[in-house]
Design a protein around this nucleic acid. Structure first.
Lengths: 326, 326
DNA sequence: TTGTACGCGTTATCAC
DNA sequence: GTGATAACGCGTACAA
């Protein structure tokens, strides 16, 4: 890879002139412009972004911190962030924390040291590292952070309520919720909304980890100890596990049992029967978070508001159509 | 963030001494070492990695190029690469190309300009950009590249054969394969292996895109035009679509129809009935690719060999147990 | 054992 | 219009 100095030499001008041509700043005669352009093409010169970063204190890098990209909720989010970043000339560094505070801190230190221009954080802790004290702009995604940090989530409370109303309207009378870890505020809201509308129809409320295996256990536990005909799961993965356990036990869906998930990931369409779910606008959430972050990076003052996007029920085949209501 | 100069001042030594302490190189008296360490802690000094990169010509960055992180095969791969990279002090930059040659080239140019230390490429083209001519080490993952580039794939040919043998042994007599885009060599091998063993039992061989919607169409097409009782799908997503279409048409699995997928992604366990599949060691593939790349980066000479990992059949419920064989 | 000074590749600020 | 040159922060000869 050639340097600006080599280009300058080849074009018989100084490095300053080359720089001016590259950045279209300041005056430069048509003649030397041509010469420089020619040399650039010939040598396939591209400015060394490391050197540029050092001077400008801007790396063009964004850190994206997720618990685990393997959890099917995150790839879409990551994709949205990457797309938006790419559009604005940023690259994305991917970090998996496994929800470990220690790993998250390490990553953040490391990213700071390499002078990333901003951070998008999607992991969920109850305790918070002082993100406010970070020198780089931060946006929280699918997570509420205290302090002056912009946040993007979906309206889980509303989603929980919608799920309950829908089940009730479709003839379910005994409602249960399989929540995620309730120490996560975004998750707890889903359950709260559901329980509020479910009211006296609520027969069970249990928790499950996010991964499939754990959710299988949770579903089995639920079926062993309670009887219900309408279940709201706090994630589509948990819902998929519930559907599978029901199938194993010969419980027919949606006749004997209706199930609603939460997320709207593609998985929902892939299982049989396809899953009714409360869909978050995942891609838009990622896009918005990236957009907010980039605006902050570029200096636009952004209110540290909480953006709560609306969710929407996608009716598929784990619930009864309202007009077929029993 | 403080600089080495500030640390030097605080410790009443020169920057050289600080550097020596940081990198544990050269002699430094116990006394100044203490002082420096003290100052480092006090100022929370971490060397600016941009400046360090500029000097050392080593960025600690690895580029990971995938078609689409949203395709459920890639998150696991990405996770493995990131884990291994992290263990060795590298960070991973994620790039989605959508299989567009143009985007891939842009990304590579960009990554080169930011002086990434290496590249892992997982996209599949028939035409090849001259990766050999790149100045940075490259490793191909799930893809065969011509030239002196190390490659990691799974043994698709063997996998295809295993699928056919298994179906035959479980009583299937009319075999079909739903392949992926056959211009991808790694995919074509799966089909070739299958067809070889299927022999005269092969009744249909069609292609499908990788995404679920397209696979749904392909499966419908297959059922409309052919009759078969054993299907091998070139990916688990395609298999999931096949299972779903079969369910819609009232074809019982595995009694009337047996299905085997390829990949071994978690999705396979989540659908009903759980999918029998030819599992690639996805995580190990990512790990190996990253390991090879890092070795090359660190200067260990690595043979540009093709690593072909063995696949394994995971028997779940879309096939009949051999001992129940009809 | 320690400090000074230079180079890494770029951009911006001056003079000319 | 254009060309030296001083930063940016770090690591390392080389001199002390």
């Amino acid at each position: 890879m050639s340097t600006i100095r080599e280009v300058a030499k080849a074009a018989y001008v100084s490095v300053a002139t080359v720089s001016r041509v590259m950045n279209e700043k300041g005056y430069v005669s048509e003649k030397s412009r041509k010469a420089v352009l020619q040399a650039i093409k010939q040598l396939d010169y591209r400015p060394n972004r490391v050197a540029r970063s050092l001077f400008q204190k801007r790396s063009g890098l964004i850190g994206l911190i997720v618990p685990d990209i393997t959890n099917p909720f995150f790839p879409q989010l990551a994709r949205a962030v990457e797309d938006m970043a790419h559009q604005h000339g940023f690259q994305v560094i991917l970090c998996n924390t496994d929800e470990q505070f220690q790993k998250e801190r390490e990553y953040i230190k490391s990213l700071e040291a390499m002078h990333v221009d901003g951070l998008i954080i999607t992991t969920n802790y109850s305790n918070n590292p002082n993100y406010e004290e970070l020198e780089v702009p931060v946006v929280a995604l699918d997570r509420v952070l205290q302090g002056a940090i912009p946040t993007v989530t979906s309206n889980g409370y509303e989603g929980g309520k919608k799920a309950a109303s829908f089940l009730l309207a479709s003839g379910a009378t005994e409602l249960a919720v399989i929540s995620g870890p309730s120490k996560l505020p975004t998750i707890k809201k889903r359950r709260d909304g559901f329980e509020e509308v479910a009211g006296t129809h609520l027969v069970a409320s249990i928790e499950s980890p996010f991964h499939f295996q754990g959710a299988l256990d949770a579903a089995n536990y639920l079926f062993d100890h309670y009887h219900c005909n309408g279940i709201f799961a706090a994630s589509d993965v948990i819902a998929a596990a519930t559907v599978q356990v029901a199938a194993e036990r010969g419980i027919t869906i949606p006749d004997e049992l209706q199930v609603i998930g939460y997320d709207g990931i593609e998985l929902g369409q892939m299982i049989s029967p396809p899953l009714t779910t409360i869909a978050q606008p995942i891609y838009q959430m990622g896009e918005l978070a990236a957009k907010l972050l980039i605006q902050r990076i570029e200096g636009t003052p952004i209110a540290a508001v909480h953006h709560e996007l609306t969710v929407e029920i996608i009716e598929r085949e784990t619930t009864k159509r309202k007009d077929e209501e029993a």
